[in-house]
């Protein structure tokens, strides 16, 4: 039998092992809740949700202008709602310890709920056969939700 010698490349494994260890360390330390983490989670959630709401607004606008098909619009709205739900779940999982962070989380949740409602209205408007709720109503609810999200984001950045 022949054996191939001097061909192992264990030198290449070292960096990847180090990276793996670093990843684990960060994953472990990153799980702890602290005010900084709460702020950043809320921040990300608000940002993702405004993106979702903006998507819904654009999709609805394009649909009304006759530029987007019904199927594509509903899909865009579905995706936006999913995104919102994910953000909401992340915020719901937070465990705020201080008065200040509790208020922060509460405010964010209200805005997220409002966004979810407006997105649902938009979806209902797309699927309704009796024009109730109609697209204008959905559009204005979405505008409202976008404003609330924007206000919260601005507040956080001050």
């Amino acid at each position: 039998m022949l054996k191939r010698q001097g061909r192992t490349r264990s030198g290449n494994r070292l960096p990847s092992l180090a990276a793996l260890a670093a990843a684990l360390a960060i994953a472990v330390t990153g799980c702890q809740s602290d005010p900084g983490k709460i702020t950043s989670t809320v921040d990300t959630a608000l940002q993702d949700s405004s993106s979702a709401v903006a998507t819904a607004r654009l999709a609805l606008e394009l649909e009304q202008a006759g530029k987007l098909t019904h199927a594509a619009t509903s899909t865009a709205l579905d995706n936006a709602l999913e995104e919102l739900e994910t953000s909401r779940k992340h915020v719901l999982q937070l465990a705020p310890e201080t008065e200040e962070t509790r208020a922060q989380v509460q405010e964010a949740l209200e805005a997220l709920d409002q966004s979810a409602t407006s997105l649902t209205t938009a979806r209902h408007a797309m699927s309704s056969t009796d024009q109730e709720p109609n697209r204008q109503q959905a559009q204005s609810q979405l505008d409202q939700a976008a404003k609330s999200l924007e206000a919260l984001t601005q507040e956080a950045h001050q």
Binding site: A59, K67, L68, N79, E82
Partner: peptide
């Protein structure tokens, strides 16, 4: 041109096609 100013970060394929619909309508879609 379309999504960045609107504050939309792409997370789904449905967002990828929105600019095309805006620019070229249903035919483009």
């Amino acid at each position: 041109v379309v999504l960045l100013p609107a504050g939309i970060e792409v997370t789904s394929l449905s967002q990828v096609v929105l600019p095309v619909a805006e620019g070229a309508g249903k035919v483009g879609l």
